[in-house]
């Protein structure tokens, strides 16, 4: 594998207009498509090398579907996911299944549930070594050595190789899942709620481990999570998703200090503070929008305290916020003439 050192600001991954729709079928014998769940709808972002991008949102916001579509665990409906392999770029959305397999070495996933994501009938050594076997990269003594090395890196011991997952605690199992992902020396790691299932005291250990490994292997993380305090701690930038769309993309500190989109504001205010004297906001009305039955215009407008007249008509798009690196999809930050132009265009296309 070539290990060229690219210029610092080249994106490892460029996601452009990525969409993933699931068809809604009619009931009965002749099943016809009568609609679509727009689980991921026109998502755009760049992921820089060595950076950690958080993808946050509530259930049904499309964050996991988005991550899986990028990795081609799901076939995208449309759009591009341009991935820098180190010797050229490929569009993951277009590449054939056959060409995809070698690329999978460079992008790995860590899953949420350390209990169901490890095969209970395989030893830890087999689990961690399996990717090397599948890709025919190592066997025999070399395989063993690489497994041992990886186990040490994630804070386990080589003698754990012979044991089965049930003998380990939740935190240790998550370390096994991390070892399995990193043994391929990937450049992109998608961590889907990787610390959500862990107890607080163990969660901190795994967060530290992820940070250490990132430094050591120059990893790029796409960190899918719903826990905002974890995201604040480890992410450089954060994309907030709502109903399949990114509604705000900002530097981590900027988002937490000065959230722009009303949904980001609501989400942050609902996080319970551990200081009893700082009261959280209990009064966010309504429910998360149903991606199969989106309201017209901005999907957040039925719950939004700041809605005004274009909000139920024109779909907002990510637009830079003046005087900041943040981009947000909210009419409050878009000049009226642009909204009017977009409204005419959107009305024409429907």
């Amino acid at each position: 594998m070539t290990n060229s050192t690219p210029a610092p600001q080249t994106p490892l991954l460029q996601v452009r207009h990525l969409c993933k729709y699931f068809p809604i079928m009619s009931k009965g014998f002749a099943r016809k498509q009568i609609g679509a769940v727009k689980a991921v709808d026109d998502v755009n972002f760049d992921l820089m090398r060595g950076e950690t991008l958080g993808l946050v949102g509530e259930s049904g916001s499309g964050k996991t579907t988005c991550a899986r579509t990028i990795l081609r665990a799901l076939a995208p409906t449309s759009g591009q996911a341009i991935f820098d392999t180190g010797d050229g770029v490929v569009d993951l959305a277009q590449v054939s299944e056959k060409d995809l397999k070698p690329l999978r070495q460079k992008m790995q996933m860590v899953f949420q549930d350390p209990f169901s994501s490890l095969n209970p009938r395989m030893t830890v050594g087999d689990i961690v070594g399996e990717p090397l076997v599948i890709h025919k990269l190592a066997r025999g003594k070399e395989l063993q050595d690489r497994v041992d090395e990886m186990l040490l890196k994630v804070g386990l011991r080589p003698e754990h190789r012979q044991r089965y997952p049930h003998a380990f605690s939740g935190g240790q199992r998550q370390r096994i899942g991390i070892a399995r992902a990193l043994i391929m020396k990937p450049s992109l790691v998608v961590a889907d709620e990787a610390v959500s299932a862990l107890d607080v005291s163990v969660q901190a250990q795994v967060i530290n481990l992820l940070a250490d490994l990132q430094d050591e292997f120059n990893l790029t993380y796409l960190f899918v999570a719903h826990d905002l305090s974890v995201v604040r701690h480890i992410c450089d930038r954060v994309a907030v998703m709502y109903a399949g769309k990114i509604v705000e993309l900002a530097e981590s500190e900027e988002l937490f200090e000065n959230p722009r989109h009303p949904y980001s504001q609501a989400l942050l205010s609902a996080v319970p503070s551990i200081d009893p004297d700082i009261k959280m906001n209990f009064d966010i009305g309504g429910e998360v929008a149903d991606a199969g039955k989106l309201p017209p215009g901005c999907p957040f407008h039925p719950r939004c305290p700041h809605r005004f007249e274009p909000c139920d008509k024109v779909v907002p798009w990510l637009e830079p916020v003046e005087g900041s690196t943040t981009r947000t999809a909210c009419h409050l930050y878009i000049p009226p003439e642009k909204i009017a132009a977009a409204g005419a265009a959107q009305a024409g296309s429907n």
């Binding site: 605690s169 939740g170 935190g171 240790q172 107890d199 005291s201 163990v202 901190a204 250990q205 967060i207 530290n208 940070a211 604040r232 701690h233 480890i234 981590s252 500190e253």
Partner: peptide
Amino acid sequence: RGARLPAIRGSV
């Protein structure tokens, strides 16, 4: 942000 968390060693 990014600083090491003072984790509790070991597990329950």
